[in-house]
Nucleic acid binder design. Structure first.
Length: 156
DNA sequence: GCCAACGTTGGC
DNA sequence: GCCAACGTTGGC
């Protein structure tokens, strides 16, 4: 089982939006970076857990946990001319872009902010904190995942 | 809004 | 295959 961090701009898709969906599930569409795509296509498995990270917003940080409930399948927004994520190079036979489906598992009582993550030596090797790192999907160790989950529970 | 750091594109 | 130009990301 693997652990992940998945970034989203909350103005586009937030954990509240996921939580308010009827089945509390959503396809993680719109990823247009090959490395992030490869993680989804090749490595993400059903049952994996991911930290939900809000980026480019007022309160930056980890806001909760989601579970991968459906493994890689083609991202249809790449074929949709009306989508902001349309890619003219994608075809039905060669979709290029893939996505997984996630399900809401937990919303932290308080955000674990980027500033706080930076304070803990135990989290200092997270890709998130490495210079120039901007991948929207990143690997997280079990230790890091548990540490952040514990930080969140301590704030209750 | 700024800007550093990346990733992608396209001419050669 | 190189690499300059350009576009994007994302924290501040």
């Amino acid at each position: 089982m693997n652990y992940w961090l998945m970034k989203s701009e909350p103005s586009t898709f937030s954990i509240q939006m996921l939580k308010e969906k009827k089945n509390r599930q959503e396809s993680w569409d719109g990823v247009r970076n090959y490395q992030a795509r490869n993680f989804m296509r090749d490595e993400m498995k059903r049952g994996d857990l991911a930290l939900f990270y809000h980026s480019s917003c007022k309160e930056i940080g980890v806001v909760g946990i989601v579970e991968i409930v459906k493994e890689s399948h083609p991202d249809k927004t790449a074929l949709d001319e009306n989508s902001a994520y349309f890619d003219p190079k994608a075809t039905k036979d060669n979709p290029i872009w893939f996505m997984v489906d996630v399900a809401f598992r937990e919303e932290f009582p308080q955000i674990i902010s980027l500033a706080e993550i930076k304070k803990h030596e135990e989290l200092s090797e997270m890709p998130l904190l490495q210079r120039g790192q901007r991948l929207s999907i990143q690997k997280v160790t079990k230790r890091e995942f548990s540490f952040i989950k514990k930080l969140a529970s301590l704030k209750q």
